[in-house]
Design a protein around this nucleic acid. Structure first.
Length: 586
RNA sequence: GCGGAUGUAGCUCAGCUGGAUAGAGUAUUGCCCUCCGAAGGCAAGGGUCGCUGGUUCGACUCCAGUCAUCCGCACCA
């Protein structure tokens, strides 16, 4: 309806040009939903925007525009108001057309073809597979999934990807930590490296699986393990030198094959755990993209070579540098260290290069806000490689802070006592977690109130929305209990019986849903959907309290039931886009 | 120091590419169940949109400066 009206304005401007008025090219008249009915349903401000360049008074120009504006049959009247707004009033009878549309489209109502099959990649979560996901990752997961689903709803072909950092030093630390715990299980006793993964839980589990499979075959005498290893930090040494030496020792004592087996066992078990965790959270990926695979097929070296060919690589102090300062970065960045090892940044360049090579029209990265310093350099590298960095959107997500009983809940990755996403889901449920995570704008700090998320009361914003859905279901159960069938066709024929203000209010809100989904999708702002659902539920609850649906008058009853069934459908579709269930009873 | 984010009602936050009288929830106060689930509804009070300038028909929105809070500034991932 909105698009249709905007096109009418476009042709009106065309007509004015034909009359000889110098209307600037490229002007797209935009309609906004009026906040209250006093200003009609839609308002257009094009007259005020064009008045000055044309040297006309806004209201005078609006008059001329109206004279040539084609009339849509669903428009009741058009008014010029205030400084030059053009207000459009939609015919009452047309307001309820949307109900039939919703009931016909069902789960498809709200979907559109705006993206027209364009391929977009959304990369999110991508947490290091060195342990279970914690609550910080949860927000990125919920947000990324919602953004992906919204884009899919407006017609994009969405490819969700998880970048598995399975090649870096952290993974070697993990493998070595597993092996050391395994040695403990075999009876050895020693001080565990301060920079290792000290968690007493999942690391032991992996070590136990290793022992189950191989007995003591991977063991080694403890004196050999620690012989000539530099001291750890608590002993006055350096924790990094200590752990790096232990990694080398593990590789030497185990040999390449067996070390790789330990490494892969840890990696696979943790990735599998993450995959299952996210699956239970309703978050799925089309692809899990391996950093190791990237290196094995030479993509990292290829990326560095391409940068070199384009003259953006220089050598200094034995290391290879990317001259990112030429593309707006603060300082140049190392891509290959003097010891021949490529940096994490180098594989990130290669990964993004491959993303562009795979031909996505748009690439979206969801990162934690603490990584914002990387935005410039990654875009710099893409520009240097000759790609359009404007196709890459990096969305930053601020951290979520958990509160319990009004107090900040403990959350520290250092001590290994972090609150995992799994624990959070068990405490408040996946629905509440998904909903609360996307309730706020992503770049806004999120205060996650655990008590509120758990509470089954009107304080809980999720229950408010789900309750509206369940209430409609309850009404339908009542209807069934009375033995009255619902005749949808009869309701359609009787839509004119809906005369109450609460009814037009509800229908208008329902009609806004597709526009809302489109806006939320294009802006990557699922929180807009959250706010909309709250308002829609509110409009329904208000209607429910003021009017009885199951009246004896069959026409009126059928019309009202159609309206609330349409409401239920929109609530369902909206919640579904956020990965939240719409229960029939609560 | 440099870069980024945030600053709107007591609290938590919306405010759609600049639009008409700045909105919700929550808390406070007062009402509404003989009737489809009160897990709900109705109403009232509550504001210098951090501050100062600028841009214009019009600024919470854009620009500059400034203050406050948070984050980042590795040959770590």
């Amino acid at each position: 309806m909105k698009n249709q009206l905007e096109n009418l304005f476009l042709s009106a401007l065309e007509a004015l040009r034909a009359e000889g008025l110098a209307v600037p090219e490229g002007v797209v008249p935009q309609l906004t939903r009026a906040k209250d009915r006093a200003h009609g349903d839609f308002a257009c401000n094009v007259a005020m925007q064009l008045a000055k360049p044309l040297g006309l008074a806004p209201r005078a120009f609006a008059e001329r525009l109206l004279a040539v504006l084609p009339v849509a049959d669903f428009v009741e009247k058009v008014e010029i108001a205030g400084p030059g707004f053009i207000n459009l009033y939609v015919r009452e009878s047309a307001v309820f057309d949307v109900v039939r549309q919703v009931l016909a489209l069902g789960a498809h109502y709200g979907r559109s073809a705006h993206g027209a099959g364009k391929r977009v990649m959304v990369e999110f979560v991508s947490a290091n597979p060195t342990g279970p996901l914690h609550v910080g990752h949860g927000r990125g997961a919920a947000y990324g999934a919602a953004v992906a689903d919204l884009l899919a709803a407006v017609g994009y072909e969405v490819h969700r990807e998880y970048y598995v950092n399975d090649a870096g030093r952290q993974m070697h630390i993990l493998a070595t930590s597993v092996w050391l715990r395994y040695l403990e299980l075999c009876g050895a006793s020693f001080a565990f490296p301060s920079n290792g993964y000290k968690s007493t839980g999942y690391i032991y589990d992996i070590a136990q699986k290793l022992r189950d499979a191989h007995g003591d075959a991977f063991s080694a005498p403890i004196e050999q393990v620690f012989a000539a290893i530099p001291a750890d930090e608590p002993q006055g040494g350096d924790k990094d030198e200590h752990i790096d030496a232990l990694i080398e020792r593990a590789q030497a004592l185990l040999g390449e094959m067996r070390y790789r087996e330990v490494f892969d066992l840890g990696l696979n078990l943790i990735v599998e755990d993450i995959r299952q965790d996210l699956g239970e959270f309703g978050v799925r990926f089309e692809n899990w993209y391996s950093e190791r695979g990237l290196m094995e097929r030479g993509a990292v070296n290829r990326a560095i070579e391409q940068l070199r060919e384009r003259g953006h690589i220089f050598e200094q102090e034995g290391a290879l540098w990317f001259r990112s300062t030429a593309f707006g970065d603060d300082k140049d960045r190392v891509v290959q260290r003097a010891n021949g090892q490529v940096t994490y940044f180098a594989s990130d360049i290669a990964y993004h290069m491959e993303k562009f090579e795979r031909g996505f029209e748009r690439v979206i990265d969801v990162w934690g806000a603490d990584h914002h310093g990387y935005v410039t350099r990654v875009k710099a590298a893409l520009t240097a490689l000759g790609y359009d960095a404007g196709k890459l959107d990096i969305l930053l997500v601020q951290f979520a802070i958990l509160y319990r009983g009004g107090e900040r809940a403990q959350m520290s990755t250092r001590s290994g006592e972090f609150v995992t996403l799994r624990e959070l889901r068990q405490e408040v449920g996946s629905d509440a977690a998904r909903y609360f995570y996307v309730m706020r704008k992503s770049e806004q700090h999120l205060d996650f109130d655990l008590d509120l998320a758990k509470s089954q009361s009107n304080d809980n914003p999720l229950y408010y929305v789900q309750y509206a859905h369940a209430r409609v279901c309850s009404v339908m159960r009542q209807l069934e209990g009375k033995g009255w069938p619902h005749d949808a066709a009869r309701g359609e024929a009787a839509m004119s019986r809906l005369q109450e203000q609460a009814e037009t209010e509800l229908a208008r809100m329902i009609a806004q849903f597709p526009e809302l989904v489109e806006r939320a999708a294009l802006a990557c702002e699922p929180h807009q959907l959250v706010h909309y659902l709250r308002e829609l539920a509110g409009a329904f609850h208000s209607y429910y309290n003021g009017h009885v649906f199951l009246v004896d008058d069959e026409d009126l009853r059928a019309a009202r039931l159609n309206l609330i069934l349409a409401t239920r459908q929109v609530l369902h579709n909206g919640l579904n886009l956020l990965g939240v269930t719409a229960p029939a009873s609560m």
